[in-house]
Design a protein around this nucleic acid. Structure first.
Length: 268
DNA sequence: GCAAGCCTGACC
DNA sequence: GGTCAGGCTTGC
């Protein structure tokens, strides 16, 4: 499940080869991926030169002189460099060809949730969890009420975090996922943001988390799975001796240590 | 504000 | 063979 560090890893992989390359072919094998109209989509980006490749939250943008497209990988999307004559795989939804480039890009997506669309790069949307300043993120968190996990997952408030990193950030900060933001002190929120930045940094450095089928543009898995403390670890023992528990919060599996992450301060 | 729907592979 | 995984949108 690509979240910010995985998407950033992919963005970096694409940038290293595709800046200033011109799209010479687009093959769509599953039209819903590009909004339903394969011909229209292809026409709009054919012969366009990629000026820049950027990321906001979990989206990647290819910027052309006149327009831009966004990629959202959702659950199982992959952007892969493959040799030019490689045939589409069972899950290949779109193939891009480039001028003076001996590799194509395959957009593979097992579950067909991923989307590619013509849209401008958004500047006014939520602060990106990695690129935004601590102050900007603090401002968002301070004025929200309700469950902290719910807020951290809301892409319209803070962009880029998903289920894995939210669970890890809350564990590191020792905050219960159901805790109401109103009841978290300013100091603690700052600590949360510090941990958010540190966890994202570490994960970006080692290529993200491959929990199920995430791979980068070269098909390589990320190393952060070895650094997870609670995600996917229900029943395992925490450093403190407690047992990692799994509950459902905001319709998502939520992992935490009941001993480290308490809702209320206790004197016990 | 919660549930369903989109999807299919992995797992029990 | 049934259930689960979940980012995001849509609908009740």
């Amino acid at each position: 499940m690509p979240e910010l560090p995985e998407v950033e890893t992919i963005r970096h992989g694409l940038s290293s080869k595709l800046i200033n390359k011109t799209i010479t072919g687009v093959d769509v094998f599953w039209p819903p991926t590009v909004g339903g109209n394969a011909k229209l989509f292809s026409q709009q980006i054919l012969n366009q030169r990629i000026q820049d490749i950027s990321r906001h939250g979990k989206k990647i943008y290819w910027q052309f002189p006149e327009t831009s497209i966004s990629f959202h990988l959702r659950m199982t999307g992959q952007l892969l460099f493959v040799p030019r004559l490689t045939k589409p795989g069972k899950f290949t939804r779109v193939i891009f060809n480039f001028k003076d480039e001996n590799e194509n890009i395959h957009f593979d997506d097992i579950r067909k949730f991923g989307r590619i669309k013509i849209e401008p790069v958004k500047n006014l949307s939520a602060p990106d969890a990695w690129l935004a300043s601590t102050e900007d993120i603090y401002r968002v968190l301070r004025k929200k009420k309700g469950m902290v996990k719910h807020t951290l997952l809301n892409q319209r408030l803070i962009a880029g975090l998903g289920n894995i990193y939210v669970d890890e950030i809350l564990f590191k900060t020792k905050i219960h996922p159901l805790k109401n933001l109103e009841k978290i002190s300013a100091t603690k929120i700052h600590e949360l943001i510090k941990n958010m930045k540190a966890i994202l940094k570490k994960s970006i450095q080692i290529g993200g988390t491959s929990f199920r089928n995430y791979v980068d543009t070269q098909g390589t898995r990320g190393g952060y799975k070895n650094w997870l403390h609670v995600y996917g670890k229900a029943g395992a023992r925490c450093f403190c001796g407690g047992i990692i528990k799994k509950i459902v919060v905001a319709q998502r599996g939520t992992h935490f240590c009941p001993r480290c992450q308490k809702i209320q301060k206790t004197s016990l």
